[in-house]
């Protein structure tokens, strides 16, 4: 049965064909400290070096058979290209993900921004494109190569104060809508560059719009229209990822036009599967920290089996995989998926 490559399995899944078993992959970061050790790389150094980023991203497949290669590892690429300053925490030995140090919009009056005409060549966008090329050359025949962009609302939360964004979403939705429209256009530009670089699939990460934060009504009225705009423009395989509470917005997520939706451990997948039907692709939904990193191999197996029994189309984490994942846990996960038959 496994005479097909992991790449073929993923692409067949996206194409709506039957597969022997769910693939076990991700659209988000999955670098491991084991992989970093192999190359002697420091996490903070990866973000600005295409070769290192590609090596690190490919290592999770090479070491554990995890069925993809995904870059980048941080969530700041678009915000940086739009003009924010980022912090990669180069001074620390511990693993910390880059954050935005300086925002673009500080007050409501500064919201009228423009997309730079040279956005496609700003910040690290050319670097990410180069990295996609490198990782494709390295493992692209065997596994699907993925990348991600932020969703418009989450990106808005990067370039302006989250406090203001949330309150204005309520008080002045028109103003926020205008900003989201502009950011959707920027995201389309970036995602198209990644398509050109050859990404097999692109995940749009819109975790800021989780029902832990925003009401399903606001999601539907204020955010969904711009997600639709993005997915309508993209030609490659697409995934919409939202973490946290998502049961009440799962149907809207499918309506966004994304080829697949991705949810985390807070989603009741069996219920979601019933709501969205069997034809929609649903990726999820194991806890990448409390299960994969700090659980026992048996707990990992149990969780992964439940994901598949509940009806996920692909076994896929709820967020970035935390790098210190113990090898025995990731091995247990791969083994559990590989022996599963529908």
């Amino acid at each position: 049965m496994s005479d097909i490559t992991p790449k073929q399995r993923v692409l067949r899944l996206f194409a709506g064909e039957r597969t022997d078993r769910p693939p076990c992959f991700s659209g988000m970061g999955n670098v491991t400290t084991e992989g970093l050790k192999k190359f002697g790389y420091k996490f903070a150094a990866l973000h600005s070096n295409a070769k290192m980023m590609s090596d690190a991203a490919a290592s999770t497949y090479k070491l554990f058979g995890f069925e993809c290669g995904v870059v980048p590892f941080d969530l700041c690429v678009e915000a940086e290209a739009l003009g924010c300053e980022i912090n990669v925490y180069a001074h620390l030995e511990d693993i910390l993900y880059p954050t935005i140090k300086k925002k673009l919009i500080h007050t409501e009056d500064e919201m009228d921004i423009r997309i730079p005409s040279d956005l496609a060549v700003r910040g690290r966008i050319p670097l990410i494109k180069e990295t996609i090329g490198l990782i494709k050359a390295d493992i692209g025949n065997e596994v699907a190569v993925g990348t991600y962009v932020l969703g418009p609302f989450t990106l808005a939360g990067q370039i302006m104060e989250l406090n203001d964004l949330l309150k204005l979403s309520f008080k002045k939705p028109d103003k926020i809508g205008k900003l989201l429209d502009m950011l959707a256009a920027a995201i389309i530009i970036v995602a198209k560059e990644y398509e050109k670089a050859g990404a097999d699939y692109i995940t749009v990460r819109e975790m800021g719009a989780t029902s832990d934060v925003l009401s399903p009504r606001v999601f539907k009225n204020l955010i969904l229209p711009y997600l639709k705009k993005i997915f309508a423009e993209l030609k490659t395989n697409t995934v919409l990822h939202i973490c946290g509470k998502t049961n009440d917005i799962a149907v809207s997520m499918v309506e966004s036009g994304a080829r697949a939706i991705s949810v985390d451990q807070k989603n009741d997948v069996a219920e979601t599967r019933k709501k969205i039907g069997n034809d929609s692709l649903l990726f999820g939904n194991y806890d990448p920290y409390n299960v994969l990193v700090s659980g026992t191999p048996e707990k990992v197996r149990e969780t992964i089996r439940k994901c598949m029994d509940d009806g996920v189309s692909a076994v896929w984490p709820g967020c970035d995989i935390w790098p210190t994942v113990p090898p025995e846990n990731i091995n247990a996960m791969m083994d559990e998926v590989k022996k599963y038959r529908r």
């Binding site: 406090n163 949330l166 309150k167 832990d212 934060v213 009401s215």
Partner: peptide, 14 residues
């Protein structure tokens, strides 16, 4: 009860 979400919470705090 999910009648209020974080934006409302922030405005109530104000």
């Amino acid at each position: 009860a999910q009648e209020y979400f974080v934006p409302e919470l922030l405005m109530c705090a104000d």
